[in-house]
């Protein structure tokens, strides 16, 4: 009976994962491997294709004052505008992750302050994990899989923009070798969200109890779904250490951008999350 409950939990989390996250790993891998004929992404590999891609997806434009246009130069403006649209997408993704978190059985019954803390500290880790299926060693899908942006192009941007994605590529290439599928990912995301060691939590015990159940469910899921992959459960959990370092480095880069870029403005939701984070 206990394992039946754990399987039911896995199914429930997988269903809400499918409900709230529009681009699944299955779909992303089909696009990346060219297995879908109707979904060939537009490739951004230089500034010219970035401008074309921008028009194609009609991304929200950052208002620019005319006098700054000439001062900054058109290329600087494009980079800032692109990262501005990345922020808008990240804010939407935070909203999707919040809905997913609320669907974890017991989450909404936790102290509301603790729900805020769990999301504040967990959401960037979740977003980085969710980026992995969109990436391969050569680049990443963006804009719901409509666009493929090359890793080389991202590396060619001026500092510190060029340093933003490279650590995520390095992590993702290794993480993807674990070959988790969407149903495994759903449970792993829930485990990350339900971390009882986040700073400032008021009532740790119910969070740890919830996480323990999801961990049992993940362990069972991985044994059943990947019977030949030895120690996969332990390998997946080890990734949580790398994730914390990635988030710390990411937040530091964002702080640097705030200090060095005149026209940089951080989305209010991302500001809330990153303020006093680490």
């Amino acid at each position: 009976p206990e394992s039946a409950d754990l399987r039911a939990l896995a199914r429930q989390l997988y269903e809400s994962y499918l409900k709230y996250f529009p681009l699944t790993k299955a779909k992303a891998r089909a696009i990346l491997s060219g297995k879908t004929s109707d979904n060939t992404p537009f490739v951004i590999h230089d500034m010219k294709s970035l401008l074309e891609g921008e028009q194609m997806i009609n991304c929200r434009q950052m208002p620019m004052q005319e006098h700054r246009r000439s001062d900054m130069g058109i290329m600087h403006e494009v980079e800032l505008r692109f990262f501005h649209s990345c922020q808008s997408r990240s804010a939407e993704a935070v909203s999707e992750v919040t809905e997913f978190a609320k669907s974890i059985p017991g989450f909404v019954n936790l102290d509301l302050n603790d729900q805020v803390t769990l999301l504040k500290y967990g959401v960037i880790e979740v977003l980085i994990i969710m980026m992995a299926p969109l990436m391969n060693k050569d680049g990443t899908l963006i804009s719901y899989g409509q666009i493929f942006m090359t890793r080389e192009f991202l590396k060619s941007l001026r500092k510190p923009f060029c340093e933003m994605m490279e650590p995520k590529f390095e992590f993702s290439v290794k993480f993807n070798m674990l070959e988790l599928d969407d149903s495994d990912m759903a449970l792993f995301l829930a485990v990350i969200i339900l971390s009882g060691d986040r700073p400032g939590l008021l009532n740790v015990k119910p969070i740890e109890d919830l996480q323990e159940t999801v961990l049992h469910s993940l362990e069972l899921q991985l044994k059943m779904n990947h019977p030949d992959s030895l120690q996969l459960f332990a390998k997946v959990l080890q990734k949580m250490t790398d994730l914390r370092q990635l988030v710390t480095d990411h937040v530091q880069l964002i702080q640097l951008l705030k200090e060095t870029e005149v026209d940089w403005c951080l989305h209010p939701l991302l500001q809330e999350i990153m303020r006093d984070l680490y």
Partner: peptide, 21 residues
Amino acid sequence: LKEKHKILHRLLQNSSSPVDL
């Protein structure tokens, strides 16, 4: 904490439709 995280709080309290970000 809720006061410092008004948007997150709103997202958590919002019952169904997505919050306009």
